Computed example of a mutant assay.
Amino acid sequence: MAKLLYSATMSVDGFIAGPGGDMSWLSEHVGEKNETADRLLEQIGAIVCGAVTFFGDDPNRDTDAEGAFGGQYDGPVVLLTHRPPHSPPEGVAVATDLESAVDMAKEMAGDKYVNILGADVARQCIEQQMLDEILVFTAPVLLGDGVRLFDRPGGGVVRMEQLPGETESWFRVVY
C-alpha cells in the first residue's frame, strides 16, 4: 500500500517558497545531481498537490523543466482544492477534501509513494495523522521570509525518526 511522503526543498532558514510564493530562488538548485532525489522520483506513484502550489510560481515556467521535480515527474496528479476548476488540466484528478484526495492518489500509486506537494496540504496530513514520511532537501540560501516548511501555530510536537541508511533529512513520522 502507498505511503504518504512530504518532500520539499527548503532554504537553510526554513522556507520552501519566498514572499508571495516566489520560487525563483529554487531554479539554480533544480537539476543538481542528487542520488536521493533521483531514487525518490522512481518511487513516486502519484502526487497530491494543493491549489496554491499547483497554480503557483514555477521557477521553470515555460521551459522543459516546468512541473514537479524539475519537469521529470510524469504520472498521476490529484489537485486538492475547495474551488475546482471548470475544466481541470488533462491528466489531473480533482478532489475537494483531503481524505478523498489521498484515497484517489493511493489507488493511483499502488505500492509506490504518494508525494505531497504544498505546505498546507502537508500540515493537514500531519493534523489528520496521515503523513508517513518527510524528506527535506536543504538549499544553501537564506530567504528571510516566505512559506515555511511547516507552519502550525499552536500545534503540538510531532516526533520523527531518521530512516536508516539515508543521508538526506528523511524521516518516518511517529504518531
Rank of each mutant, 00 (worst) to 15 (best):
A8R: 04
A8D: 07
A8M: 15
A8H: 03
A8F: 12
T9Y: 12
T9K: 07
T9L: 14
M10Y: 03
M10D: 12
M10W: 07
S11L: 09
S11R: 02
S11F: 12
S11T: 07
V12L: 15
V12Q: 05
V12P: 03
D13Y: 11
D13I: 14
D13F: 14
D13C: 14
D13N: 13
D13A: 14
D13S: 12
D13Q: 10
I16G: 04
I16S: 07
A17T: 04
A17C: 10
A17E: 09
G18Q: 00
P19A: 11
P19Y: 04
G20A: 10
G20E: 13
G20H: 05
G21L: 04
G21T: 07
D22N: 13
D22M: 10
D22Q: 06
M23H: 05
M23K: 07
M23E: 06
M23Y: 09
S24V: 00
W25K: 07
W25Y: 05
W25I: 01
W25Q: 01
L26M: 14
L26I: 00
L26T: 00
S27A: 13
S27M: 03
S27G: 00
E28N: 03
H29F: 15
V30K: 03
V30N: 03
V30L: 14
G31T: 06
G31W: 07
E32S: 13
E32Y: 07
E32W: 11
E32F: 09
E32M: 10
K33C: 04
K33M: 05
K33N: 10
N34K: 13
N34I: 00
N34R: 13
N34Q: 09
E35F: 00
E35V: 05
E35M: 01
E35L: 09
T36H: 13
T36V: 13
T36R: 14
T36D: 15
T36G: 10
T36F: 11
A37V: 14
A37T: 13
D38V: 08
D38F: 02
D38G: 15
D38C: 10
